[in-house]
Amino acid sequence: MTVDPYETLGLTKSATADDIKKAYRKLVRTSHPDLHPDDAGAEARFKAIATAYDLLKDPVTRARFDAGEIDGAGAERPQRQYYRDFADAGDNPYQQRRGFERNVDPADIFAEILRQRTRQGGGDFNGRGFSAPGPDFRYALEVPFLDAVRGGEMRLTLPEGGSVAVKIPEGAHDGQTLRLRGKGGSGFGDGAPGDALITLSVRPHPVFRREGDDILLTLPITIDEAILGAKVTAPTVKGPVNLTIPKGASSGRVLRLRGRGVSHPGGKTAGDQLVELNIVTPPEIDEALRDFLTEWRKTHSHDPRVDLLSEAAP
């Protein structure tokens, strides 16, 4: 009876290479005799699955099967028997290559090991002591800005249900990947479970910005604070602090709060917080202030744009 490798893997001829790989990996776990010792038909099914995968994973043999040149077992059809005469040629592009290629999926390596053991009549997990680590699972987690700076703990909801606690280290940054050992896929035999790899995405903050280990903040101040100087309260990622505004401060001036930036676990130093001053006029100008500035303007001719205009002149 003619065997259709597509039917064996539950696929159609329109299946992609990725579809073929996924179908095979799924069937490995449901049909391999080592994993199902009480299933009398598992060995025969798995041999058929391995044969179908060997044929379809290779674009050349797949194309030859689709063209009717070989059958589902990979044997030459009578009218194309001459094709095999060239199978062992040194420059034959159709010659099968053994072993694993670069960037091969670890799950494929595991499947190949099982397949080779089946062909060789290998034993079971207990008899041969076979084991393999489980696969790693990857997740993405959005973290509030302050939790990334200060550290904290969040819960990650897993696709298969349930959740796991994720400890966010102090000073975590956008794009950082955390590893939770043993929280990935189950191992095979006595193999250890895989890990959960969690990539962080730090949510922007409405007040603070981060550059490396420094925190940036724009601080509004009043006209009188800018002219006369003042002590004001400024927010930082580690709590509010007192900040001295020097007399005659202008918008754009940057004050540095040392050690008020981002820290790291076990680190001896921390980044700084840079505070950029921004003078803000009152929402309403009363008559007293307007009259004072009107008279002040008459006797003061300070022009802060003189140097700017001079440098901009052609």
Rank of each mutant, 00 (worst) to 15 (best):
D4A: 03
L9F: 00
G10M: 05
L11Y: 02
S14Y: 05
D19L: 05
A23W: 00
Y24K: 03
R25P: 01
V28P: 01
R29D: 05
S31F: 00
S31R: 10
L35Y: 02
H36N: 12
D38I: 06
G41R: 13
G41F: 09
A42W: 09
A44G: 09
R45M: 08
F46S: 03
K57Y: 07
K57G: 01
D58M: 01
V60P: 00
R62V: 07
E69Y: 15
D71C: 07
G72W: 01
A73P: 00
A73I: 00
A75E: 13
E76W: 07
R77P: 00
P78E: 10
Q79I: 08
R80W: 13
Y83Q: 12
D91Q: 09
N92Y: 02
P93M: 01
E101H: 07
N103P: 01
N103H: 06
D105T: 03
I109T: 07
F110W: 10
A111E: 03
R117K: 09
F125W: 15
G127K: 12
G127D: 11
G129K: 10
G129N: 09
F130E: 07
P133K: 13
F137M: 13
R138I: 05
Y139L: 04
A140W: 01
L141G: 08
V143Q: 07
V143Y: 10
G151M: 08
M154P: 04
M154Q: 15
R155I: 06
P159K: 11
G161A: 05
G161E: 03
G162H: 07
V166G: 14
E170P: 01
E170R: 12
A172I: 07
A172R: 05
H173I: 11
Q176N: 02
L178K: 06
G182R: 03
G184T: 04
G184S: 04
G185D: 13
S186N: 04
S186C: 02
S186E: 12
G189M: 02
D190M: 06
A192N: 00
D195I: 03
L197N: 05
L197F: 08
I198S: 02
L200P: 04
V202M: 01
V202Y: 06
G212A: 12
G212Y: 12
D214H: 14
D214G: 10
T222P: 05
I223C: 08
E225R: 10
K231A: 14
T233Q: 15
A234E: 10
A234N: 02
P235M: 13
P235K: 13
T236C: 11
T236K: 09
K238N: 15
K238V: 11
L243Q: 11
I245G: 11
A249K: 14
S251P: 13
S251K: 10
V254S: 12
R256N: 13
G259Y: 12
G261R: 07
H264Q: 14
K268N: 15
G271A: 05
D272G: 00
V275L: 12
N278D: 10
I279T: 11
I279E: 04
T281R: 00
E284V: 15
D286S: 04
L289V: 07
L293G: 03
W296R: 09
R297G: 02
K298C: 00
H302Y: 15
P304S: 10
P304G: 07
L309V: 08
S310M: 11
E311C: 03
A312C: 04
